[in-house]
């Protein structure tokens, strides 16, 4: 049910307040955990120094572990609740935005603001933290979507636009937003995200649309949901809204990291750009290096190969990478 502007604002407000108060509550939990971990670590150090694990110590460790697990589970629940609230806020905002757009008011950004918006939306894509023995869902990280998956309006996709249609007069995979999906014609209507272009509405068949991940994968809990090094991918080239072929140099190591990739680049001697170092995002609000790639902008190797015929085998790329290091 769509909200009016006031209702939406109130809903968001409610959640923001509740999050703030939960943060205060959570602090006590966090401090307790810190203490607990310290106790366990002290016990570990002691046992390591003694050089053996007596039954008494083992029993003690077990009880410490059990207590810590219970607390961590409680902590997990609190955190998940907060994150769900944050997600709800984003959903409300997005809905509101779509509503406004359907009326005909298009928010217009200048290019820099749009790029920043893309970055934040990539960063604030929800993180999937799997419970033990659960598989990450489709569209989480590198997990491909269901074959019959239809992207919802407002979702980000990579759309293949041919030379004749394209404003830039070349074949391109561009970043676009779904406007609607026509069930009868089985075609998507998408908007080019770069609104400075004149003609930004495209009608494209399903094969020319690749939905982008809806969740980030956590390297610490679900490393399998990430593209391994050496994978050939399509990645959003820095400061543009187009996807180009690239190879994963290093997948993210923590949930804050990005992929490190090298792009195909004919201007460089070996045909590839230098691998870009990825700075920590929240180390202190550093100006982002211009080549940093957000995980959200990844699409899948298989789909690329289907559409673009002239792709080399990934092992070629792998060798190149190795020789470079």
């Amino acid at each position: 049910m769509p909200f009016t502007e006031e209702q939406a604002a109130a809903q968001v407000q409610d959640r923001l307040i509740s999050i703030a108060s939960t943060v205060h509550d959570y602090e006590t939990q966090r401090l307790k955990t810190e203490q607990q971990v310290e106790t366990i670590q002290k016990a570990h150090d002691k046992i390591n120094q003694e050089g053996r694990l007596t039954p008494y110590n083992q029993q003690k460790l077990m009880s410490l572990y059990m207590a810590s697990i219970n607390d961590a589970a409680a902590e997990e629940e609190t955190l998940r609740n907060m994150l769900i609230k944050i997600r709800e806020i984003r959903e409300i905002c997005n809905e509101r935005r779509l509503q406004v757009r359907s009326i005909g008011n298009r928010e217009s950004f200048h290019r820099g603001a749009m790029m920043l918006m893309l970055q934040t939306s990539a960063q604030t894509l929800p993180l999937y933290v799997g419970k033990p023995n659960t598989k990450p869902p489709p569209l989480c990280g590198a997990i491909p979507p269901d074959p019959n998956y239809i992207a919802k309006p407002g979702d980000m996709v990579a759309a293949f636009v041919k030379k004749t249609e394209s404003p830039t007069q070349e074949d391109n995979w561009m970043l676009a937003e779904v406007v609607l999906y026509n069930v009868i014609s089985k075609k998507y209507e998408v908007d080019d995200i770069d609104e400075e272009q004149q003609n930004c509405r495209f009608v494209l068949s399903r094969s020319r649309i690749v939905p982008l991940p809806l969740m980030r994968a956590n390297p610490e809990t679900d490393p399998d949901a990430l593209f391994p090094p050496g994978t050939l991918v399509m990645a959003l080239y820095p400061t543009t809204t187009c996807f180009y072929k690239a190879i994963v140099n290093q997948p993210p190591l923590s949930c804050l990291d990005d992929y490190e990739v090298v792009f195909e680049d004919n201007s460089c001697a070996n045909g590839y750009s230098i691998p870009y170092n990825v700075a920590q995002r929240y180390g202190g609000r550093v100006e982002k290096p211009k080549n940093e790639i957000s995980r959200k902008e990844y699409i899948y190797l298989v789909t690329c190969e289907k559409t673009l015929r002239q792709i080399k085998t990934s092992s070629d790329y792998g060798e190149l990478l190795v020789s470079k290091h």
Partner: peptide, 19 residues
Amino acid sequence: LDHLQPELEMLLSAAVLRQ
């Protein structure tokens, strides 16, 4: 909120990993 989210995610990941 944009900054808080990743921090909470980090905490969540740590809690799950610890468990």
